[in-house]
Amino acid sequence: MKATFQVPSITCNHCVDKIEKFVGEIEGVSFIDVSVEKKSVVVEFDAPATQDLIKEALLDAGQEVV
Results as ranks from 00 to 15, higher is better:
14 H>I: 15
55 K>M: 13
25 E>P: 05
15 C>P: 05
32 I>Q: 00
14 H>G: 11
53 L>K: 13
34 V>P: 03
1 M>P: 03
62 G>C: 15
54 I>C: 03
18 K>S: 07
54 I>S: 01
23 V>F: 02
5 F>Q: 00
30 S>I: 13
15 C>D: 14
13 N>P: 11
59 L>T: 07
60 D>E: 13
47 A>P: 13
1 M>R: 11
46 D>H: 11
53 L>M: 11
40 S>A: 08
58 L>A: 00
63 Q>Y: 15
21 K>I: 07
46 D>S: 14
53 L>Y: 05
16 V>Q: 05
5 F>T: 00
7 V>L: 09
33 D>K: 12
21 K>D: 04
4 T>R: 10
16 V>L: 06
45 F>R: 00
63 Q>R: 07
49 A>S: 02
23 V>S: 01
5 F>C: 04
55 K>E: 08
28 G>A: 03
8 P>R: 11
56 E>T: 12
64 E>N: 09
39 K>V: 04
33 D>G: 10
30 S>N: 08
3 A>S: 08
13 N>T: 12
23 V>Q: 00
4 T>M: 09
29 V>P: 01
62 G>Q: 06
7 V>F: 07
1 M>V: 07
28 G>N: 02
30 S>Y: 12
31 F>N: 09
48 P>I: 02
49 A>Q: 03
60 D>M: 14
38 K>A: 10
54 I>F: 03
4 T>I: 13
56 E>N: 13
2 K>T: 10
37 E>C: 07
22 F>G: 04
19 I>A: 01
4 T>G: 05
49 A>I: 01
46 D>Q: 13
65 V>Q: 05
30 S>F: 12
50 T>N: 06
50 T>F: 03
7 V>H: 03
49 A>R: 04
29 V>Y: 03
14 H>E: 15
64 E>M: 13
1 M>Q: 13
2 K>N: 06
1 M>L: 08
2 K>G: 04
61 A>R: 02
36 V>L: 11
47 A>M: 09
35 S>V: 06
63 Q>S: 05
60 D>R: 15
66 V>C: 14
64 E>A: 08
24 G>H: 05
39 K>L: 07
37 E>I: 10
12 C>W: 10
7 V>C: 07
22 F>N: 05
35 S>E: 04
17 D>F: 12
20 E>V: 15
62 G>N: 05
19 I>C: 02
32 I>A: 03
35 S>A: 04
33 D>R: 12
11 T>L: 09
41 V>K: 01
3 A>F: 10
61 A>P: 02
37 E>S: 11
3 A>Q: 06
39 K>G: 09
47 A>D: 06
19 I>F: 03
5 F>R: 00
4 T>Q: 09
55 K>F: 13
24 G>F: 09
15 C>I: 11
3 A>Y: 11
6 Q>F: 15
62 G>K: 05
32 I>H: 00
37 E>L: 10
8 P>L: 12
31 F>W: 13
45 F>E: 00
9 S>I: 05
37 E>F: 10
60 D>F: 13
12 C>E: 10
25 E>V: 11
6 Q>W: 15
62 G>R: 05
16 V>I: 09
29 V>K: 00
26 I>G: 01
13 N>C: 15
27 E>N: 08
18 K>Q: 08
59 L>M: 11
27 E>A: 10
27 E>W: 07
55 K>Y: 14
58 L>K: 00
30 S>E: 06
15 C>E: 11
9 S>K: 05
32 I>E: 00
56 E>H: 14
66 V>M: 08
36 V>K: 05
29 V>L: 02
49 A>G: 02
51 Q>R: 14
48 P>F: 03
23 V>G: 03
36 V>E: 04
25 E>N: 12
15 C>H: 11
36 V>D: 03
49 A>H: 01
38 K>Y: 12
26 I>R: 03
55 K>P: 02
3 A>L: 12
35 S>P: 00
47 A>E: 09
1 M>W: 09
20 E>H: 15
61 A>E: 02
46 D>L: 09
44 E>Q: 09
21 K>G: 05
34 V>K: 01
44 E>P: 04
1 M>G: 07
22 F>A: 12
51 Q>V: 15
16 V>W: 08
1 M>S: 10
48 P>W: 04
29 V>S: 00
62 G>A: 07
48 P>R: 04
62 G>P: 03
39 K>Y: 06
40 S>H: 10
17 D>M: 13
10 I>Q: 03
42 V>C: 07
20 E>M: 15
63 Q>K: 07
43 V>K: 03
6 Q>R: 13
27 E>I: 11
45 F>N: 00
59 L>K: 10
14 H>Q: 15
38 K>H: 13
12 C>R: 08
61 A>G: 03
60 D>I: 11
41 V>M: 04
55 K>N: 06
28 G>F: 03
24 G>M: 12
49 A>V: 03
20 E>G: 07
9 S>N: 09
37 E>P: 07
29 V>F: 03
65 V>T: 05
66 V>N: 07
1 M>N: 11
31 F>I: 07
62 G>T: 10
13 N>F: 12
66 V>S: 09
12 C>M: 09
26 I>D: 01
52 D>Y: 12
21 K>F: 11
46 D>P: 01
62 G>I: 13
43 V>M: 02
5 F>W: 06
33 D>S: 13
20 E>D: 05
47 A>H: 12
15 C>N: 09
38 K>S: 10
20 E>T: 14
12 C>S: 13
40 S>I: 14
17 D>N: 10
33 D>I: 12
36 V>G: 03
5 F>K: 00
56 E>Q: 15
35 S>C: 07
21 K>P: 01
9 S>A: 06
61 A>D: 02
4 T>Y: 14
18 K>E: 07
66 V>K: 08
35 S>D: 12
46 D>N: 13
43 V>E: 01
34 V>H: 02
45 F>Y: 14
25 E>G: 11
20 E>I: 15
48 P>A: 02
57 A>S: 04
15 C>K: 06
19 I>K: 00
45 F>A: 00
41 V>D: 02
13 N>E: 13
43 V>W: 03
39 K>W: 06
53 L>I: 10
52 D>E: 13
36 V>T: 05
63 Q>F: 15
31 F>Q: 07
60 D>P: 03
4 T>C: 12
14 H>F: 13
59 L>V: 09
44 E>A: 10
50 T>L: 03
26 I>L: 09
38 K>C: 11
18 K>P: 04
50 T>I: 02
20 E>K: 15
16 V>P: 05
48 P>N: 01
37 E>W: 10
25 E>C: 07
17 D>E: 14
42 V>N: 06
2 K>I: 12
13 N>S: 13
63 Q>M: 15
57 A>D: 01
52 D>N: 09
60 D>S: 14
58 L>T: 03
39 K>C: 13
24 G>K: 09
45 F>C: 02
26 I>F: 02
4 T>K: 08
18 K>Y: 06
37 E>N: 06
34 V>C: 11
6 Q>V: 12
58 L>M: 06
43 V>D: 01
51 Q>D: 07
53 L>N: 05
2 K>W: 12
42 V>Q: 07
14 H>N: 14
66 V>P: 06
